[in-house]
């Protein structure tokens, strides 16, 4: 047990170290010299040598890459992710300010999608190839194939502009959260529905389901006690992976609904080439994603009695 935990921690460290290196290194993808490009884009004309040198000195860009990276890395342990080029505000402050909105949206979307997808997936599998199954499969297909920003506008058009039921943009109240959560939750619900259905169909083929039937267990219990419990095991992993999907979607949905959050912060920073902010947001989302997946693996161990030690990778 301890050994498995140690080896898991080892690979986790390697992954997070890699993530931080790539995150920091990303800015060097900038065509030409970053300082020069930033100043050029900011002013619209070519900056002078001295201006570039000053900018570099101010933001520590004059050091060799390795030193810069190490300084940035050690800063992280002190809770310092640098300061924004544009507003000179500490990145940590900005992140803390915007993070709660994004977390709120992500959790709401998760809740919407799970509440929808698990029952629909189960019913679909149990009534395989009936009209119920076909309808929900078709709905799921639409959900997967719809661009979420487009769905967002359709919802705004219908609920905010035509019916006037919800505000079109902004954040703060439950009404503000409703449309973004549905927009983001729909795609996720569609994916999870299909996975629940597939997993249920597989489990319903298992011999032990027939064993339960042959015992005289009622069909409802066969489905919900014997099949669903086992079908949920892979679903948990997939839902964990879908956290990445939620983070992706949050970026776009926040822009559509003009919600202040990590997504809007990131997009604005990317356009302004405000690299400290970009690095901060990328690092936070990636680390959050990695840690979620580790937690999901732990949940997996709890759900599946066959995995006694941490050997499931």
């Amino acid at each position: 047990m301890l050994r498995a935990l140690l080896s898991r921690l080892g690979s986790l460290t390697v992954v997070i170290a890699g993530v931080s290196l790539i995150t920091y290194g990303l800015i060097y993808l900038t065509p030409g010299d970053p300082a020069h490009t930033i100043l050029h884009e900011r002013r619209g004309s070519s900056p002078s040598e001295s201006e570039v040198a000053m900018f570099r000195a101010e933001h520590g860009l004059d050091e060799p890459f390795v030193i810069q990276y190490i300084e940035w890395l050690t800063g992280i342990f002190r809770g310092d992710l640098g300061t924004s080029y544009a507003s000179s505000e500490p990145v940590t402050t900005l992140l803390l300010q915007y993070l709660p909105n994004t977390v709120e949206l992500a959790l709401a979307a998760m809740a919407v999608s799970l509440a929808l997808s698990i029952p629909v997936g189960v019913v679909s599998a149990v009534h395989r190839d009936t009209w119920i199954d076909r309808t929900s499969q078709f709905a799921a297909l639409l959900g997967i194939s719809m661009p979420n920003f487009w769905l967002g506008y359709l919802l705004i058009l219908l609920f905010a502009l035509h019916l006037g039921l919800t505000p079109t943009s902004g954040s703060g109240t439950l009404a503000h959260l409703l449309l973004p959560a549905i927009t983001l939750g729909t795609g996720l619900a569609a994916i999870v529905t299909r996975i629940v259905r597939t997993s249920m169909l597989e489990v319903l083929e298992e011999e032990y389901v027939d064993t339960a039937r042959s015992k005289g267990v009622s069909e409802r219990l066969v489905v919900y006690k014997h099949a669903l419990r086992n079908a949920l095991i892979p679903v948990v992993t997939i839902v964990g992976l879908q956290f990445g999907f939620v983070l992706n979607g949050a970026v776009v949905v926040e822009v559509v609904f003009q919600r202040p959050g990590l997504g809007t912060l990131l997009v604005d920073a990317v356009f302004a080439r405000d690299y400290p902010i970009v690095q901060g947001v990328v690092l936070v989302t990636a680390v959050a994603f990695v840690i979620t997946n580790q937690l999901v693996d732990l949940a997996y161990v709890a759900l599946d009695p066959r995995i006694e030690r941490g050997e499931h990778a």
Binding site: V19, L26, I27, V251, V281, T285
Partner: peptide, 14 residues
Amino acid sequence: AFPGLVLALVIAGV
């Protein structure tokens, strides 16, 4: 570890 769109967004942006 990187959510796909976030990374693509940053790479394309930079």
